[in-house]
Design a protein around this nucleic acid. Sequence first.
DNA 1: GCAATCTCCTAAACCGGTATAGTTTCACCT
DNA 2: AGGTGAAACTATACCGGTTTAGGAGATTGC
Lengths: 347, 347
Amino acid sequence: MAKHRPTIADVALAAGVSKGLVSFALNDRPGVSAMTRERILAAADELGWRPSLRARSLSTDRAFALGLVIARDPQIIAADPFFPALIAGIETALAPVGQALVLSMVVSEQAELASYRQLAAHDRVDGVIITDLRQDDPRLALALELGLQAVTLGHPDAPSPFPAVALDDDPGIRSTVDHLVGLGHRRIAHVAGPARMLHGSRRRNSFASALELRGLHGDLIVETDFSASDGARATAELLALADPPTAIVYSNDPMAIAGMGVAQRAGLHIPDDLSITGFDDSDVGQYLNPSLTTVTTAAQEWGRTAASALLRLIEGDDVADIELAPARLVIRGSSASPPPRTPATAR
Amino acid sequence: MAKHRPTIADVALAAGVSKGLVSFALNDRPGVSAMTRERILAAADELGWRPSLRARSLSTDRAFALGLVIARDPQIIAADPFFPALIAGIETALAPVGQALVLSMVVSEQAELASYRQLAAHDRVDGVIITDLRQDDPRLALALELGLQAVTLGHPDAPSPFPAVALDDDPGIRSTVDHLVGLGHRRIAHVAGPARMLHGSRRRNSFASALELRGLHGDLIVETDFSASDGARATAELLALADPPTAIVYSNDPMAIAGMGVAQRAGLHIPDDLSITGFDDSDVGQYLNPSLTTVTTAAQEWGRTAASALLRLIEGDDVADIELAPARLVIRGSSASPPPRTPATAR
DNA sequence: GCAATCTCCTAAACCGGTATAGTTTCACCT
DNA sequence: AGGTGAAACTATACCGGTTTAGGAGATTGC
C-alpha cells in the first residue's frame, strides 16, 4: 500500500473547497476570502502538500530551470577557476527560489549549438546564461529562434536582444600593464586567449592600448586556446625571440603557471629575469614560488547576478544591462623590475 | 497568430488515427500494423512533431534527468580537475539519449542534504550520482527515503542499496610509495584529505599500509581540507619538524603545487632536497618546474560509466558494481633520490 | 423593490502525453 | 455455423496542476 504524495485534490477535499480555489489560494490570487485561504493553507500544510512541479510545468508552460552550456575542453575548464565559481554563484540565486540549473558541457561548437537546441526542444529551461561570447556569436540568434530567454556574460559585439551582465576586464589588464611599466619594463608580451572569444580579444586590445598609451609597442602577442599546454608553447616561443620580453601578461592563471615553469626550466629566475602575471586569481597562485601576480574577478558574484537577472527577465520584467565591479590587479611576487641591462646580443 | 508546436493530436489527425495509437507507434509497442506505423511516423515527421517531455514527465512519472550535487568550497573545486572531467563524462552518456544533468553546487553539508530533498520534492531527477562519499554517509539513507535511484562513485563503507562505480585509488598510492621507497626515501609524509571523506581516508590507509609493507613508518600524516591553502599549511608544518620528510605524497594536485611553492620558498630544491607527488594529474602539472609526479585517474570515463549505469538502473535493469581501471602513477620531475645524508641536527 | 455589481466559490476544460478498457474485424477451429 | 481468439484500433480516463466560464448570495444603486 504505497502512500502517494498528496495532490491538490486531497487538499481541496480536506479544506472542503474545489481544486481551483486551492490553486488560487496557493498563488495569492484575489477572489479567495481571508478565512478560506487560511483554511486551505492549513490543510495543505497539514497534509504536507507540495504542488507538483511537473504538473505546473505542463499547465503553465514553464520549466522553472535555467540552462548553462559550457563549450570547452574539459582539460581547460579543469584548470580554470572561473566556472566553478560562476556555477556556485548561479546556485546561490536559484536555490532559494526553487529553480534548478541544467548544465551541459560539450567539446565542439557544433555540439554546443545542438545542446541549446536540445534544451529548447525538450523545454528543459526557460532561459540560458550565455558565457564565453564569441565574435558574431551564433547563439544569440539561436536563442531567439528557439524562444529562449537569455542573458549574456559580457557585452556581445553586436546589438543584442538580451541584457548583458558585464564585468569589465579592461581595468585589470590596464593596471597590470601600468604596474609593469611602472616597474621599468619596456618590452612586455601578452599571451592571449583565442581571438574569436570576445574576452580574449578584449583583453588583448586592452593590453595593446595600455602599452601604446605609454608610448610602447603592444604588438608582442601570442594567441592560445587558453590551455596550460598552449600557454607553455607560447612562453617558449616568446623566450626564443632574439629580443625576448622582460614581462609576460597571461590571459589566465593556468597559462601563467605553465609559463612560469617553462621560464624557470629555461634557467630564468622569476621575477628577476622575467615578470609574469596571470588572470583569474586561482587559489594556488598565492602559494607558488614566487606567488603569482594576477587579476581577480568576482566570478561568483557574476553568476549570482546573471542568474537573478535572467529570472527577472523570465518573469517578464524589463532588465537593463548590468555592470559589475571591474577586474582588479593583485600584486604578488611574480612581478618585479626588469634586469638592469638587456644585452642587445641575445641569442 | 502564433504557430503552436504540433501535438500528438495533430499527428493523430493527420494520420487519421487516434492519439493512443500514435503513442503506441512512437514507443514501438505491439498492436500497430506495420503499414499504419509507417503512416504515423511519416505524419509525425512531416509535422515536425517532437513529443513534449513535460507531458511525458507528468504521465509517466519520470524526469528524464539525473542529478549531481557537489558540496565543496568553490575555491577547492576550482583547483580540482576532477569535477569538470566527471561532468564532461556524464554528459557524453546523457546527451545521446536526450537526458539532462541537473547540477547543484553547495557549500555546507546542511545545504547538500537540503539540495537532495529539493531535487526529489520537485521531481527534478530520476536518480543521483553520489560523489565524495563520506563515512557513514547520510546521503544513502536519504536517497532511499526520497525514492531516488542512485549510484555511488566508489564503494561506501557500509552495505549499500545502490550499485557502486568504483575506481581504485590504492594502486596509484601504492606505486607512488613504491616509487619513492625505490628511490631511497625512508621518511615519507602524506598530506591527506579529510578523514571523513572515504577517498581521503582510503588514500591515507593505502599510504600507511604500503609503507609498513616496506618496513617503514606510515604515520607521518597531516590532514587537510583538500584546499591549496591547507596544503601549504600542512607542508610548512612538515618542513618545520625536527626530522622532516624527504618526500611528501599529496592527495591532490593543487596541494602538491602549493606545497612545492612553500618548499621552494623555504629554500629547498625540488626534487633534490624534497620529492613531491600529487594526485589527479592536472594539466598544469607537467609544465611546472619541476614537472609534477602524480597519479592519473580516468575521471571522464568514471562519469560516463556512472551515468550510464544509473540510467540502466532507472530503466529497471539490475546493475552490479563496476570496477574501472585503477589509478596509475605518472612519474615526472618532482621525484628523485633523497639527499645523500640527512643531518641528524636539522634546524 | 429590483436590477446591477461584486465577492466568493464551483465545475469543467485544458496542458500533452500514456494507459487501459472496450470495440471491430477477421482468421481459425471443430 | 457458431464460438474463440488474436490483431488493430478507438474512446476515454488519467497524471496534477491552472484557468476560464459561470453561478449563488450579499451588497449597492437609484
